[in-house]
């Protein structure tokens, strides 16, 4: 079984700590994650907003490259890239004529043997994850899935579309206490981070305020866009809310890394806008 890795563009730039923490954790777990050869951008929101063919062609080239390399599956940790690859795979396999036309556009044939995997699926398959935990993450956490890991439900076929549990179960294994809350899969404002920052401040603000009011000490995410909006856009969120909101936003791979006892710097925690002043061990432990 060969599992490839599609980092996507954000993990090479604004979300590099997601990549750093994933690779650090993978090393500890003895998992190899070779990158898809000469991968390109998936096109994200822009492509499907402006150009339907491009929206399928860009992911099709990635899938074809992974398939040609003999990868049985590709891990796509960015929820937005995951959605584009998963939707493209679905559409191409549903419609043979479309598949042939898109194959012609990208000069590569994707036959559908390579599956697309999200980060929660990949982590859930680690047998006895609990055994790797050295410093239990004894904190109340809000597991935030966002939109695209779980929707459209008929295509991604992963967990429940409005009250998913996979991340909650993973965090429980790390020793955390996931809270029950209302904004698990509400939208953070996604690709409007630059063009409509005002709307991101509003939507992301609602998410953080609910997490805080229910006693969460950290928000756990699995998507670079969610992290960007909840963490880097914090000044905009605070300005709109008219108050300080200091809850940190942590990638699931960083939480796992901390629980495994990996140093914070290796997990890229110093790159966050909102300081992560909690360590994996219990509240009495020294801040990192």
């Amino acid at each position: 079984m060969k599992t490839g890795f599609y980092p996507g563009c954000s993990m090479k730039g604004s979300a590099r700590e997601y990549s750093e923490s994933l690779l650090a954790v993978a090393r500890e777990l003895n998992r190899e994650l070779p990158e898809v050869p000469d991968w390109n951008c998936c096109g994200a929101t822009a492509a499907h907003n402006l150009d339907p063919d491009l929206a399928l062609a860009l992911p099709a080239r990635i899938l074809a490259a992974a398939e040609k390399d003999g990868m049985d599956e590709v891990l796509v940790p960015c929820a937005a890239c995951y959605s584009r690859l998963k939707v493209t795979r679905h559409e191409l396999l549903e419609d043979e004529q479309l598949r042939q036309r898109i194959s012609g556009l990208v000069e590569a044939d994707y036959r559908g043997s390579t599956e697309v995997l999200n980060i929660l699926e990949w982590l859930s398959r680690v047998p006895e994850l609990e055994k790797h935990v050295k410093k239990p993450f004894q904190r109340k956490v809000a597991c935030y899935y966002g939109c695209l890991l779980v929707r459209p439900a008929g295509i991604v076929k992963f967990d429940r579309p409005e009250d998913p549990q996979t991340m909650d179960l993973l965090m429980r294994k790390l020793g955390a206490e996931p809270i029950d809350w209302a904004f698990k899969t509400e939208c953070c404002g996604a690709g409007f981070s630059v063009s409509r920052t005002d709307l991101v401040a509003k939507l992301s603000g609602h998410i953080l305020e609910d997490a805080v009011s229910r006693g969460a000490e950290a928000v756990i995410v699995a998507c670079p866009m969610c992290h960007l909006n909840l963490d880097m856009r914090r000044p905009n969120i605070e300005k709109r809310a008219g108050k300080k909101i200091s809850i940190p936003v942590i990638y699931i791979t960083q939480a796992l890394g901390l629980a495994m006892g990996l140093p914070a710097k290796k997990l890229g925690l110093q790159r966050h806008k909102v300081a992560v002043k909690i360590s994996a061990a219990n509240a009495a432990a020294k801040d990192i």
Partner: peptide, 15 residues
């Protein structure tokens, strides 16, 4: 924003 995004991808293949 969308157009700037695709401009970048067209030139370098990655954002």
């Amino acid at each position: 924003f969308h157009r700037a995004f695709l401009d970048s991808v067209r030139v370098t293949g990655r954002l």
